[in-house]
């Protein structure tokens, strides 16, 4: 099945100023395709969370958007540092965000659980020293 939209957004580590640009573009593109309401909001929130995570925690990575007729697929991949304890990272309230991220209003430890809650399918794989990959699927219609 060919994707209606296939776009990759590079995300720079610690670039707090640009954080959110990819998600804003993703939301705009989906809206142009006629995606709206609850699904649009869930994709927007999850993509913003995952983009912020790349900025706050990773050494850099990318966000890939694919839109198919029946679903939206968002994949985030980074080049490290990886998450040592995934079950701890998935816990609400657990955060390793630095002061700069916290001063911007983030680092409450809601990111990963919130992505999982908003996506219809959620998968995360991480290896310390290698990186983290998060895949989220959202059903359309």
């Amino acid at each position: 099945m060919d994707a209606l939209i296939h776009n990759t957004y590079p995300v720079t580590a610690r670039d707090y100023t640009s954080a959110g640009h990819a998600s804003a573009d993703i939301k705009r593109r989906l809206k142009q395709l006629g995606v709206g309401g609850d699904v649009l909001r869930r994709v927007a929130v999850a993509s913003y969370e995952v983009e912020l995570n790349l900025v706050i925690h990773s050494d850099g990575g990318e966000l890939e958007l694919q839109v198919f007729p029946d679903h939206v697929q968002l994949v985030s991949k980074d080049i490290g540092p990886g998450i040592p304890d995934l079950s701890l990272a998935m816990r609400e309230g657990w955060s390793t965000a630095n002061d700069e991220a916290r001063s911007l209003g983030f680092g409450a430890g809601m990111g990963l659980p919130n992505m999982k809650r908003n996506a219809d399918d959620f998968a995360i794989e991480s290896e310390v020293g290698k990186g983290t990959a998060i895949s989220m699927g959202f059903k359309l219609g």
Binding site: T17, G20, A24, V45, Y48, L104, G105
Partner: peptide, 14 residues
């Protein structure tokens, strides 16, 4: 809070 992320958060949540 008056940083750009307040606006981005508002945008994501309409």
């Amino acid at each position: 809070l008056t940083n750009p992320h307040v606006i981005r958060t508002s945008e994501m949540l309409d």
